[in-house]
Amino acid sequence: MEERLLQIQDLHTTFFTREGNVHAVDGVDMEIGAGENVGIVGESGCGKSMTAMSVMGLVKKPGKVDGGKILFDGMSLTDMRPKERRKILGNQISMIFQEPMTSLNPVTTVGKQVKEALCLHNKGLSQKEARERVVRVFEMVGIPDAAKRYGEYPHQLSGGLRQRVMIAMAMVCNPKLMIADEPTTALDVTIEAQILHLMKQLQEEKGTAVMMITHNLGVVAQFCTRLYVMYAGKVMESGTVKEIFKNVCHPYTDGLMKSVPDMESKERLYNIRGMVPSMLHLPKGCRFCPRCQYSGPKCFEEEPKLYEVSPGHFVRCFLFEQQTAQEGEA
């Protein structure tokens, strides 16, 4: 792998609620190389957004990052003073949110909002220079009439344009890492295709690494090179997109892929039985075992580790424990 840009080691993010402690992120290890496109997939409540928020330091009370390390470019974000950390956030790591309408300020022009992000991290910039740079970024993300749009308010723009503004805001400081939290979920398919295409193009031009959080496996297949599948706060499977889509190992990933109706066959859809467990009452042993069709007695007792089934492809399931052991001996 290329140079490691982001390393997450045994991250724990816990919410201390009246009903009990919710381990939203429960021992997650992750790595993103420079310029790499990594997808994080899972259903709601699996901890994928919380992982991103932990990296950004945006976890709000009653939540807290209470264990593990986040290393960015060799620096430890978790040990840094908040003031130091703020210099990196928005500058070297930026974030795109799902709902562009609620993440933009409705009473300020979009140009000013993007300029604010730029000026905050580049104190020496004159107003005129800053404005020019924002207009250039607007042009780069494909906003037509960039100079005119600079002075418009978010409500005057369509959903697709708003998301382009968000991307412009994220790109304006030339970050090394961009975290995109469901950037296309709220958009129509034709606009989604445009935005994904734009992100890919920018990523190739600027060499920005992208952490793409999504529930849409199609987006991952099209956009990412590597992928982490999360379930109930843990990584269940990880590896390259090519490998996982060809050789699915974890029963959860497999079920997830089979649950998506494709546009070719009309065969009855596969169902993962049951539902996502409450994070307050997680099952003992493997978290997926009550829903898993292969679960044996061991699954209900012990928690599986991540086993490497092929180089770079890790699976958290006992089904692959022996396979790895045998390979290890051989």
Binding site: V189, T190, E192, A193, L196, H197, N216, L217, G218, V219, A221, Q222, F223, V241, K242, F245, M257, V260, D262, M263
Partner: peptide, 14 residues
């Protein structure tokens, strides 16, 4: 519209 749907096959790029 049909082409815009992200394909589940990573080999078939949009």
């Amino acid at each position: 519209l049909l082409d815009a749907v992200p394909n589940m096959d990573p080999e078939k790029k949009q």
